[in-house]
């Protein structure tokens, strides 16, 4: 129904449906833009991770590509000094509140943070900022998976999967500010909640916050992406 338009991303001419979100147009055309929170299937973009900035000709400041819809003749740059600087700071901010121990992490080599670091040549350690992570109890109560909130980057994907995809409603965001957290009712154990242990959240989590117990035991075994 929507009309096809052409735009230019990093000097490459691409076709897309008018009104599509720029992030997905770029990804579909093999152009990588770092991203954590946006889901192609989701009704609404949340634009919370702030990693997907790009420059668009004619706009004064970088914009998030997940909230930007494409239009005819748009000229996009996925890299620029300003975009790179924002990504560097945003990424380091996330790392400053992420318990870093990649070697032992169940998601080692399949973690979205590692992917961003690799694509953009960023270090997986803090260079300017202070470590903020507090020790958190890992919730090992479900049968086959665990939830470690100290790894969570608050992208909200798991909540989308739980509430919109499998429509269970076991987890949600609680509190606010630095205390914001993915949790169950009264921040209890998953096994004590209405969680059906369907693993939808585990499949969708881009980092090592929701992970399978078997992956932790065999951390180097690389499974195929689904």
């Amino acid at each position: 129904m929507s009309k096809l338009i052409t735009l230019i991303i990093d000097d490459k001419q691409v076709e897309a449906k008018e009104g599509e979100r720029l992030l997905w147009v770029a990804l579909d055309n093999g152009i990588y833009i770092p991203h954590l929170c946006d889901l192609r299937m989701a009704r609404r973009t949340v634009a919370s991770c702030r990693l997907c900035f790009v420059e668009i000709e004619g706009l004064p400041n970088p914009v998030t590509s997940c909230t930007q819809t494409v239009s005819e003749g748009m000229v996009v740059r996925t890299r620029s000094p300003r975009v790179d600087r924002l990504l560097r700071t945003g990424f380091e901010l996330l790392l400053s509140n992420h318990r870093l121990h990649c070697a032992k992490c169940a998601k080692n080599k399949r973690c979205e943070l590692q992917k961003i670091a690799k694509e953009r040549g960023l270090k997986l350690k803090l260079t300017r900022l202070r470590q903020l992570v507090k020790e958190a109890q890992i919730d090992e109560s479900p049968g086959v998976f665990c939830y470690d909130s100290s790894k969570c980057v608050l992208c909200g994907r798991c909540i989308w999967a739980d509430q919109e995809q499998v429509k269970v409603g076991a987890i949600g965001f609680i509190r606010r500010g630095i205390g914001r957290k993915v949790a169950t009712f009264e921040d209890g154990l998953l096994a004590d909640s209405i969680c059906t242990q369907c693993e939808a959240c585990v499949k969708i989590c881009p980092v090592g916050a929701f992970y399978l117990k078997e992956d932790e035991r065999k951390p180097y075994k690389i499974k195929k992406e689904c």
Binding site: A47, S48, T89, L132, L154, F173, G177, I178, G179, R180
Partner: peptide, 10 residues
């Protein structure tokens, strides 16, 4: 801060 986005929360 509502805690939603990276730059403001952290």
């Amino acid at each position: 801060s509502c805690g939603k986005c990276t730059f403001c929360r952290l």
